[in-house]
Design a protein around this nucleic acid. Structure first.
Lengths: 196, 196
DNA sequence: AACGCTTAAAAGAACAATCATTCTTTTATC
DNA sequence: GATAAAAGAATGATTGTTCTTTTAAGCGTT
């Protein structure tokens, strides 16, 4: 017998994510991936059933870390302003810590190919978020809005800002770097939009 | 001599856009495109230098229509509320009229491959928008914000909402359809965030 | 500690399918 | 009959996956 080298699986996943982020979804070919990881093509197939399996594992990994980070220091019965700010901060720090994961996730979400799978982990997260908003509406902290509109204002704004940061460019073509102060400034504006 | 059939170029462009939107960027292969357009592979090369040239022409076409539609009934010296609402309406109707173009554009913008080219047409549009915001700030209609933050609130919200509409699903997984009233409702909230 | 034996990891060649592009031939129009 | 559009075959590279061979790790026996 010969033991599987779990390091190999990690290297494969890492390189695969890098390739997808830098060269797009079709930039990931098994041959190029093998070369990048310094192993043979067929070795990949020892650790992953096929290309699709590899992609699914990458997605699951990114989702897991994301959900875990998001709920850090957050609970559904917080003050709305406190809770939403915590969510923003968590997201912001997650993206700074794992820019690769975030870019991969964005790519995955925007791809027309991938049918949006709903794993239980993600479902639980969404339910927590719904409870949080329902609470805030009941306590008259915010206006009652269709969830889509709420989400578009509260998170659409955030993610657009983050995209500017990661692209390091804006409509004006000038460099842009996000900071804690700029994030807070934006947050205060968004709160003004959502308050009763 | 034999004249070029401009219809062919149109069909090729149309089918190419459909393929990209439905199957992703790598879903466009010259062989599949030829089959879809009912012509031979080599005929494509009569109308387009190569694959890259085809993509660039598609992008230019989508940009042209977009910019033209955006400025309809808009001028930089309008009231801020009027002007921004006109922009939203223009965008909204453009997306309803040309969902394919919009999806293609989104795909293009999100792709890591394409280096963001700045054609003069687009530049002029951006300058108009900057003038518009500067005017509004001077007239004390809105708070003075870094352009990125302004853009994130004013348009990030809008595009997130549109994405929900086009995907016909939200965080909750339930169907969602955007309407004039919902758009106005969202707009009023966004205005509240931007007002002095 | 050194030896085989087993087993599966790892490598690399090989496969058919598909990719973008071009070459050669045919066809239609002026 | 000239000319270029259009077709289709052909090219060489690259794709995902598998087949065959080599190599290394673990284990029981000396």
């Amino acid at each position: 017998m010969r033991a599987k080298d779990e390091n190999k699986a990690i290297v494969i996943r890492e390189k695969a994510m890098e390739m997808i982020v830098s060269q797009g979804f079709d930039g990931l070919s098994m041959h190029k991936l093998a070369k990048a990881a310094g192993i043979s093509v067929s070795t990949i197939y020892i650790y992953f059933k096929n290309r699709e399996d590899l992609l699914n594992q990458l997605y699951a990994e990114a989702t897991g870390i994301f959900v875990q980070t998001m709920l850090d220091g957050f609970s559904a019965d917080m003050t709305f302003e406190q809770g939403l700010w915590q969510q923003w901060r968590n997201r912001y720090h997650h993206i700074l810590r794992h820019p690769l994961h975030h870019r991969f996730w964005e790519q995955f979400r925007n791809s027309p190919l991938i049918e949006k799978q709903n794993d239980p982990c993600e479902q639980r997260f969404k339910q927590t978020m719904r409870d949080f908003v329902a609470n805030a509406e009941e306590k008259k902290e915010i206006v009652k809005l269709p969830p889509e509109i709420f989400w578009a204002i509260a998170y659409g704004t955030f993610y657009t800002l983050v995209k500017f940061h990661l692209d390091n460019s804006t409509m004006a073509g000038l460099p842009f770097t996000l900071s804690d102060e700029l994030l807070k400034l934006t947050f205060d504006r968004v709160m003004q939009a959502l308050r009763l």
